[in-house]
């Protein structure tokens, strides 16, 4: 979907991106993570030409982006930033309708699309359509921001630290939302973040950047199990790499057959393993009953069973 070929960018003679080549696969969530000044945000902004690159080529669906008129290019890409980017003088519906209006969609089609997106993002259209941004909570504003980015059904969704201003609880729920939307529409998504947990949770493909270059890229599990160097190890947090590995897998993947054990706790099959570990400890038990949808007993998960690391490719069974 997006291809960087030896791209460089400098400000006043000082290089911020050097000879960057990367590929964003269609229908996948790619997350670029790095500390501030790593060039991650610049990388995203070069895609919708909020920053122009100085050398190399950036291809969007096979076309060089410099050859596409800039406003047209941006209308084909959804763009979401921190919650304060909503237009404060427009209602929720007008905010979401921004790009469809620029593309001169038919009024009824726009109204239908606005309601559909509000529905998808768990905001009841009747209640929220006519509210102003300042009447929404931070989380709701962010939902509207995401809806606005997706309004004209863009070919790729660019999210620049979208949840940076949210509290941890709202943040976690927005991350779930992004995965849910991704399952629903199968969009190509690029997320920029400095939060390793957010990156591990969202990414199909994770790119770690430092000083304008890629340090390591791959599936999250691959980076956790085979960090390329000390920088990567530090970044992903040496001490709790194990816990992070657990967080990438669900109870389902470690379930063993077994009858229902009376007196042991019950855990849902789609819960992440780090939460299962916490339950083992807090309940002082080494076996938990696993249930699926509708509380059907599926099997057991054991404390020692958590030690198994599955082959790298079997990641949570989420993906596109």
């Amino acid at each position: 979907m997006i291809e960087f070929q030896n791209v460089s960018k400098s400000y006043h003679g000082k290089a911020v991106i050097e000879n960057l080549s990367l590929h964003l696969e269609k229908g996948k969530i790619t997350v670029i993570i790095g500390s501030s000044g790593s060039g991650k945000s610049t990388t995203l902004k070069m895609i919708n030409r909020l920053e122009e690159h100085n050398a190399g080529k950036i291809l969007f669906a096979g076309e060089e982006i410099a050859s596409i008129p800039v406003e047209q290019l941006r209308c084909r890409m959804g763009y979401a930033i921190q919650s304060n980017g909503l237009f404060p003088h427009w209602s929720v519906a007008e905010n979401i309708a921004c790009v469809p209006n620029l593309l001169k969609w038919d009024k009824q089609k726009i109204a239908r699309r606005v309601d559909e997106l509000l529905e998808v993002l768990d905001l009841s259209p009747e209640q929220y359509r006519d509210r102003m941004p300042h009447q929404l909570s931070g989380g709701q504003q962010q939902r509207v921001g995401v809806a606005r980015a997706m309004a004209a059904d863009p070919e790729i969704l660019l999210m620049d630290e979208p949840f940076g201003a949210l509290d941890p609880v709202t943040r976690a729920s927005m991350q779930k939302e992004v995965r849910r939307i991704h399952r629903l529409y199968g969009k190509t998504i690029l997320v920029i973040t400095h939060d390793i947990d957010e990156a591990l949770y969202l990414a199909d493909h994770l790119i770690l950047m430092d000083k304008g270059a890629i340090v390591q890229q791959g599936a999250p599990m691959e980076i956790l199990t085979q960090p390329a160097n000390d920088f990567v190890r530090d970044f992903i947090g040496r001490s709790d790499i194990g816990l992070k590995m657990l967080s990438l897998q669900t109870v389902e993947s470690h379930m063993v057959p077994g009858e229902y054990r009376a007196g042991c706790g019950v855990i849902s099959s789609d819960i992440a393993l780090n939460e299962a570990l916490s339950r083992f400890i807090s309940e002082q038990s080494d076996v938990l009953n696993v249930t699926g949808a509708d509380d059907v007993h599926l099997g057991l998960v054991t404390f020692s069973g958590l030690l198994k690391i599955p082959a790298l490719q079997s990641q949570m069974g989420r993906g596109a």
């Binding site: 919708n48 406003e71 941006r74 304060n84 980017g85 237009f87 003088h89 921004c98 790009v99 980015a149």
Partner: peptide, 27 residues
């Protein structure tokens, strides 16, 4: 005018004239 709002307007594909007329001047 909040720079984040202007950047959003730009990133969503508004032309400079649209940004002025529909975002900057009203705000």
């Amino acid at each position: 005018v909040n720079p984040a709002v202007l950047e959003a307007a730009k990133g969503l594909g508004m032309s400079p004239f649209d940004r002025l007329r529909r975002v900057e001047l009203p705000l």
